[in-house]
């Protein structure tokens, strides 16, 4: 089966995020980006399916800083083909970018299953997988945590609240928004990524000339204005531990 996985770079939120002087966008001057965690799970799920059923995994991404590293890492993990969309306008909304990706996908060999993260940290306008499904006329389901394929049907698990999951039968080809793969994303040693850089190539496809207009405007981006903040316990680890033990004793929690 042919599997297609969309990958996206997002800011690493372990780092401090700064707002640009325009007050509406992220300051990218010192921004460290990483693969969107849910996309990493989508890739893992695709690799698991390939191991079970055979076939190929193609990874597709919009050009972005450090995207080559991410694509080579995907090849090192077992993807067969990496495609990068170049010359797309910057600052596209999620829906605009997804529409653009759909046009590119339509020009690639047909996929039985398209997987991507159910959402990305920087999504403000919709969910990519839903838009791609709509554009291609494929069925869609999101918040997926397991996929089994049997002929032309995929059985997927979708997470609800309270630990309850729902089982759905989905007719292929389909688009899935992945919450988590069945296993944690595999680790790939740097040496293998370097080997992939030598042995394989990233293909490039130019972005379609026509791009849909954004339908949202960001009026302001800012750190949350908080109505409350934790009372901070400070000092050496010793002092902090003393304060905390005292607090728990006062509250009758010991």
């Amino acid at each position: 089966m042919n599997l297609l996985v969309l990958l996206k770079m997002v800011p690493d939120i372990v780092e401090e995020l700064e707002v640009a002087p325009d007050g509406k966008s992220l300051d990218t001057s010192f921004l460290r980006t990483i693969i969107n965690e849910r996309d990493d799970h989508a890739l893992e799920q695709a690799l698991l399916l390939k191991e079970r059923h055979g076939g190929t995994v193609t990874v597709l991404a919009l050009d972005a800083p450090d995207i080559d590293d991410t694509l080579f890492a995907a090849l090192a993990k077992g993807a067969d083909r990496a495609v990068k969309i170049t010359d797309a306008p910057e600052g596209m909304t999620t829906q605009t970018a997804a529409r653009l990706c759909s046009q590119v996908i339509a020009g690639l060999p047909p996929a039985d299953l398209i997987l991507t993260g159910v959402q990305a940290l920087d999504d403000l306008d919709g969910l990519s997988a839903a838009v791609i499904a709509q554009q291609l006329g494929f069925p869609y389901i999101g918040v997926v945590t397991a996929v089994t394929v049997n002929g032309s049907t995929a059985t997927v698990l979708k997470e609800f609240a309270g630990g309850v999951r729902g089982e759905f039968a989905v007719t292929l080809p389909a688009v899935l928004g992945v919450q988590a793969a069945e296993k944690p994303p595999r680790y790939v040693p740097v040496a293998k990524v370097r080997a992939a850089m030598k042995s394989s190539k990233i293909e490039t496809v130019p972005a379609p000339a026509e791009v849909a207009a954004a339908q949202i405007e960001v009026r302001q981006l800012a750190k949350p204005v908080v109505s409350s903040h934790a009372e901070m316990l400070e000092g050496s680890p010793e002092e902090i531990a003393d304060k905390l033990v005292q607090l728990l004793a006062q509250r009758g929690l010991l």
């Binding site: 999620t94 969910l127 979708k158």
Partner: peptide, 23 residues
Amino acid sequence: WTNLSMDAGALAAAKLNAPFVNG
């Protein structure tokens, strides 16, 4: 914006070519 409804909402927006403001 729940696991139950978020994907239906986002898909409806896609069908309508309408914006969907997340979160």
